[in-house]
Design a protein around this nucleic acid. Structure first.
Length: 102
DNA sequence: TAGCTGACGCAAA
DNA sequence: ATTTGCGCCAGCT
């Protein structure tokens, strides 16, 4: 465990409800702009319940991977009406996307 | 110690 | 606009 992983946990833990951050954003705040890969890797290993890792999504607005599945992660974000903390530009487009029908 | 993998991101075609 | 390939940092074997 390095300073980076600790900072990542702190940052993700500080994400309030209804707000989400991308791996890229978290990595940058952690001090490693190019360590977005490591962010996911760390959470996957930690998957600490005190860390709302489901609020960490990809920079594209997609939910990304999750220990319970992308579907569950997506549902969780929709449940709290999550939106991009970095301005409400794309406003979590996938939230209203029902690929299962209508 | 070195190499491979991975919950990603960006550039090029 | 979408799809494919490559690069990156940190962690694990």
């Amino acid at each position: 465990m390095s300073e980076f992983s600790i900072k990542v946990c702190q940052i993700v833990r500080k994400i309030p409800e209804g707000q989400v951050k991308s791996y890229r954003d978290v990595a940058r705040l952690a001090g490693s702009p190019g360590g977005y890969r490591a962010v996911g890797s760390i959470m996957r290993k930690n998957q600490d319940l005190s860390i709302p890792c489901h609020r960490v999504i990809k920079a594209n607005g997609e939910p990304g991977q999750y220990n319970g599945g992308e579907k569950e992660k997506e549902l969780r974000l929709i449940a709290e009406d999550a939106r991009l903390d970095s301005g409400c530009n794309i406003k979590y487009t996938i939230a209203r996307n029902c690929e299962g029908g209508h």
